[in-house]
Design a protein around this nucleic acid. Sequence first.
DNA 1: TCTTTTTATGTAGTTGACTACGCAAATATA
DNA 2: TATATTTGCGTAGTCAACTACATAAAAAGA
Lengths: 163, 163
Amino acid sequence: MENNDFVKELGYLGFTMRLKRISDAMMHEGRRLYSELDVDIEPNWYVIFKLLKSRGAQSVTEIAESIKMAHPSVIHITNKMMDAGYLISEKDPTDSRKRVLDLSTRSIKMLPEYEKIWNAGEKGVEEALKEIDALTFISILEEKFFNKGFKERTLEQLNNKKS
Amino acid sequence: MENNDFVKELGYLGFTMRLKRISDAMMHEGRRLYSELDVDIEPNWYVIFKLLKSRGAQSVTEIAESIKMAHPSVIHITNKMMDAGYLISEKDPTDSRKRVLDLSTRSIKMLPEYEKIWNAGEKGVEEALKEIDALTFISILEEKFFNKGFKERTLEQLNNKKS
DNA sequence: TCTTTTTATGTAGTTGACTACGCAAATATA
DNA sequence: TATATTTGCGTAGTCAACTACATAAAAAGA
C-alpha cells in the first residue's frame, strides 16, 4: 500500500472501508491460490468442510448458527458444494422440514490434500500476524461491533451532540 | 458473538473469514443506519464525497488509485451517485479518453448534513477502538497482506514443507 | 509519419453476502 | 382438537467487489 492512499488519511472514518478492502483482497488471493494449485474449491468452502468434519452432519440452520452466517448464504454455498460432489443431503427422519448435510466420500478422499493447503495458509497468516496478537484484536472487534453495532454507536453519537 | 462460534475455534485459519464477517456486518449496519435516518446514500459513497471535496475533480482512474479500488468498481459506484444527482461528469478537454468527475451543487448542499452523520460514525468507531490502537493494527495488516499477499505466503509455506 | 504500445474507460460475467418474503411442518395454546 | 405461532428451508432481489476482455485515444518508437 503506497502513500497515495486517501482512505488512510480519513482516520477512523476510513476504518471500515480498510477492513473491507483487506478482507476482499484476501479472499481474491484465496481464489487465485486455488486456481494456481488447480484445486476446484472456493475460498469460503473450507469452513463447511472443517465444520462437518469436526462436528458431523448438520442441518442448514445449524450450520448457519455455527458459523454465524445468514441461512440463505449457507444454502448458496452448500448447493455449490453439492454440485461439485462434496456434500450429501438428506431429510431428517424425525423432522421433515430439516435437511441434513454431510461430507461425501469424495470429500473424505480429498480432505487430506486440501488440509495441506489450509494448514499452509494458516501458517502463513500466523507467521505474519502472531507478533501483533491478531486473534485477540479481532475478538475485541467482534465484541465491540456484534453486540452493539456500528449503527447503534453512530446514533448514540448523533444524539449526544443534540443534547 | 456467542460462544458457539466455530470459526473462532479455527484459530488463524478462521482469521480471514472473521475479518470478512465483521466488515460485512459493519456495511450492512451502515445501510440500515442510512435507511433509518432516511438518507438516500449508500455506505461506500462517503469516500467519493470526501475525496472529491478534499482533492477536487478527478478522473475515474485517478479515483480508483486514490482509494485503491479496481476501476470498474469506481465506475459502478459513481454511476449510481450520478443517477442520484450527486456527481457531474465531463470529458477532459486535453485528453478525450478521460472522464472527470466532480461534486454537483446538490452534493455541496447536502454535504453538511451527511458530514454530521459521518462524524458521528467516526466518533463511534473511535470511542470503541481507540484503546486498542486499531489504526496501527490495520496498517500492519495492510502492510503484511498488500505487499506480500495471502497467496504468496501460503505458497511459501507449502514449499517450505516440501524442502 | 506509420506502427506499436500503453493508458483510460466501459461492459460482461463471476462470486459473496444480505434482507424480505413465502410455504410447509412442527409446536404451542386455547 | 382446532387454531395460532414458531421454526426450517428455499427463492427472489439487492448491492459490492473482482477479473477478463474490448475499444478508442494518446504516447512512444522505428
